[in-house]
Design a binder for these strands. Structure first.
Lengths: 223, 223
DNA sequence: ACGCGTGCATTGTGATCGCAGTTCAATGTG
DNA sequence: CACATTGAACTGCGATCACAATGCACGCGT
C-alpha cells in the first residue's frame, strides 16, 4: 500500500502511474520474477486499472516489464548474465557517444548542475542511501546526455537504464554501497570543461565499465 | 473503412492492431506529420477504440509514433536529417554486431531460408513492388539476426527498423526502386556459410551503409 | 465582403462492466 | 491420510459510457 490520492498535479494519470512503476522497477521494489496484477497495482496506487494498463503497456514495450505469453501475467525480467552482457555492451557504445556529443555544448550552467548532482551522489554513498544514490547517479548522467542534442540516442539510453535498474539494486544487495565509491564523474567534468569530446567519452566509458563489472560480479556471485 | 471481421486468428486483438499499424507506419501508408485519431483508426480496422489505444501506446513507446504534447494528437514522426543520422549510427553499430553473433550458429536451414528471402528481395526489386521488397528485406535481416541469440540487441534492432521505416519509403518515392539493386546479401551469406563472423559483420555493415546513404540523399533532396 | 466569436462535433482519458480463461484452495472421496 | 475434483475468486481483454478539452466551421456583426 502506498499513495491514496491521485496526486492531481497537472500530468495525466497514466503518466504518473508510469513514473511510479518506473521507479518501483528501477529501485527493485518489484522483485524480479514474481507476478503482479493490474488490479493490485491499481488498488495500491489508488487509481482505476485503466491508466495502469496504459503504463504497463509502455513499460512492456520498453522491456522494463515482461509478460508471460501463456499466463499473460507480468513480472520484472529476471536478471541473467546474458541480459547483463548485452545491456552492458549497448550502454558502453551509446552513452560515451552521448557524452562526446554533449561536450561541445557544455556550459557553466551544465557544469554547475553536474557538480551539484555529483555531490548528491557522494552524499548518498556516504550515507548508504541506495535510492538517493540511484536517483542522483541517473540524474547526473542524463543531465549530461540531454545536452548531446541527440533525441533518438537519448531515448535509447533511457530505455537501457530502465532495463539495467534491477541489476543495480542487486549490486547493493550483495556487495553493499561501499563497492561503488570510485566514480569517474570528476574526470568527466574536467573533460567537459575543456570541451574535450574524446576525454568525456573515455571518462564515461570508464565509469560505466567499472559499474558494470561490479554488477557482473554480483550477478555471478548470486548464481 | 476496410476490414469488418476481427480476424479471429489466435492472437489478441490489440496485437493484430499493433501489427496492422506497424505495417502502416513502415510502408508509409500513414504520411509523416498528419494527425490521426484513435477512433478513426478503430473504425478503419473494425474494432473498438480500446485495443487501438493499447497498440498506439506501444508504438509511441517504441517511437514509431509521436504524440504532440499539446494536442495529444498523434502522428508519424517527421523525417529529419538529424533523426536519420542518429538512426543510421545506431543501426551501423547494432546490426553488424548481430550478424557477427549469428555467424557461429548459421546452419543449412538458415542459409536455405536466407537464400529464399534474398530471392524474394530480388524479385520484388525486379517488379518494383515496394511493399514486397520491404517485407522481404526485413525478413532477410531478422531471420539472420534472430540466430544471434541476443534478445536484448534484437529488440533494439527491431525498434530501429520501425523508426527507419518511413525513411525507406521516401527512398522509393524519390529515386525509385532501381536505386537499391545492389545489396550485400550474397556477400553476407558467403561469410555465414564459412562461419566467418567478421566477414558477416562487414557485409551487413556495407549493406546498411549503402542503404542509409541512399536514404540520406533522398531526404536531402526532399528538403 | 471580411473578420471574429460562438456552438457543435470530435478528440483523448478514465471508470465501469461483462466475459472467458486461469489459479488456487478447500472440499469430498478413495 | 493422500489425492483428485470442483468451485469461487481473480486475471487480462475488450466494449461502452461519461467528461473535459480541443479544433473546426458556420454564422453573425460591422
Amino acid at each position: 500500500m502506498a499513495e491514496r490520492k491521485p496526486l492531481a498535479d497537472s500530468l495525466a494519470v497514466h503518466d504518473q502511474v508510469y513514473e511510479a512503476l518506473r521507479q518501483a522497477v528501477i529501485t527493485g521494489r518489484i522483485a524480479p520474477g514474481v507476478g503482479v496484477s493490474l488490479r493490485s497495482l491499481a488498488a495500491e496506487l489508488g487509481v482505476s486499472p485503466m491508466p495502469v494498463r496504459d503504463a504497463v503497456r509502455r513499460l512492456v514495450a520498453e522491456r522494463a516489464l515482461a509478460i508471460n505469453p501463456a499466463n499473460k501475467r507480468l513480472s520484472v525480467p529476471s536478471l541473467t548474465a546474458d541480459r547483463l552482457e548485452q545491456l552492458s555492451l549497448a550502454r558502453l557504445w551509446i552513452e560515451p557517444e552521448l557524452a562526446a556529443r554533449a561536450a561541445p555544448h557544455a556550459d557553466a550552467a551544465l557544469l554547475k548542475r553536474l557538480h551539484e548532482l555529483d555531490a548528491a551522489v557522494d552524499d548518498a554513498l556516504r550515507l548508504g542511501d541506495v535510492d538517493a544514490y540511484m536517483t542522483a547517479n541517473h540524474d547526473f548522467h542524463f543531465a549530461l546526455y540531454a545536452r548531446a542534442e541527440a533525441e533518438v540516442l537519448l531515448a535509447m539510453a533511457g530505455g537501457l537504464w530502465l532495463q539495467i535498474g534491477p541489476f543495480m539494486r542487486v549490486v547493493f544487495g550483495r556487495v553493499g554501497a561501499d563497492g561503488l565509491v570510485a566514480d569517474r564523474h570528476a574526470e568527466a567534468m574536467e573533460a567537459l570543461k575543456a570541451h574535450d569530446a574524446e576525454g568525456a567519452r573515455r571518462a564515461i566509458a570508464a565509469d560505466l565499465s567499472e559499474g558494470m563489472d561490479k554488477m557482473r560480479m554480483a550477478v555471478e556471485a548470486g548464481r
